[in-house]
């Protein structure tokens, strides 16, 4: 499962054609906030030509589209023939999801989406959004949310705790990905604090708004040596006993714990050589 979701502006060739080398597990090519109104046509065309000619390999690719017409239809039409893992839908609400589904139904399409949760309204229908059929993950959009609520963010994330927790629980209840909001400065110390808040709560990954944020996020969401050691012991005991229920160090281990340990080891293997210093 992807740890780092890197935003790439859809109108900058230099960023697009190098997007796959920054070691993010997923890319979100942005046609929305990163693009000025008068550049929307340029960005859509460039992104489409890029994905047709050089679809990045070994990385998930999403496109953040514009939610409002007429741009929504133009974006969706341009993306239809392309090989992408889904779209990121800004300001996702239950009604915007229904509109998205209705548009897809016209063409008999089923392009998945990641919901960007960044309006107060969305928090009152979060579980329904998370359980909506085409939704494969939720991203917390704290910047737009701050603008809408008057919330003031800092690196300790106290003010965000409720929103993070609520989004996380809805995503976990629906069995989809919980993806944390980007941190908007490049300064290492505050980025690191912000990452740790999300990691402790149980988020699966986090957005990056600059390639230089990727190594820190990759590292933070890479299991620690202790987590790995414990997971290896659990899987080993499971294989020895051929059982999903046993005790280890005096604690009971059951099926979800075994499966979590297996998933942890698999992702660690997959990401072993995409870490900050590559140790």
């Amino acid at each position: 499962m992807a740890r780092t979701y890197l935003f790439i502006p859809g109108n900058v060739p230099r960023m697009l054609q190098n997007a796959d080398v920054f070691e993010a597990d997923a890319l979100i090519i942005d046609l929305e906030d990163a693009i000025a109104t008068y550049e929307k046509d340029e960005a859509r065309e460039l992104t489409a030509q890029f994905l047709r000619a050089h679809r990045p390999q070994g990385v998930e690719v999403y496109v953040r589209i514009n939610a409002e017409e007429p741009l929504f239809s133009k974006d969706m039409k341009a993306l239809a023939p392309l090989e992408i893992d889904g779209v990121v839908l800004p300001k996702t609400t239950l009604s915007s999801l229904k509109a998205y589904e209705a548009y897809q139904d016209q063409f008999d399409a089923k392009l998945p989406l990641i919901g960007l949760i960044e309006t107060p309204e969305a928090f009152f229908e979060l579980l329904q959004i998370a359980k909506f059929s085409l939704v494969k993950g939720l991203i917390l959009g704290a910047e737009d949310l701050s603008a809408a609520t008057g919330m003031h963010r800092d690196e300790n994330g106290q003010e965000l705790l409720f929103c993070r927790s609520k989004l996380l629980l809805a995503a976990k209840a629906a069995g989809i990905r919980a993806i944390d909001t980007p941190w908007t400065t490049l300064e290492e110390a505050s980025l690191s604090l912000d990452i740790q808040s999300a990691k402790r709560l149980g988020f699966d990954g986090k957005c990056a708004i600059h390639p230089n944020q990727v190594p820190s996020i990759n590292d933070a969401f890479f299991p620690t040596e202790e987590e790995l050691r414990k997971a290896r012991r659990i899987v080993k005991r499971h294989e020895e006993t051929n059982s999903m229920r046993f005790s280890l160090d005096g604690k009971m281990v059951d099926k979800p714990v075994v499966e979590k340990a297996k998933a942890l080891l698999e992702s660690a293997e997959a990401y072993r050589f995409k870490r900050g210093k590559g140790q």
């Binding site: 080398v21 920054f22 390639p211 230089n212 210093k277 140790q279």
Partner: peptide
């Protein structure tokens, strides 16, 4: 360098040396 491409190459070099 702050150029992410340059930093990627530097990371890769340090991984190889290790």
């Amino acid at each position: 360098t702050k150029d992410p491409l340059g930093l990627k190459i530097a990371r890769e070099a340090l991984r190889l040396l290790q």
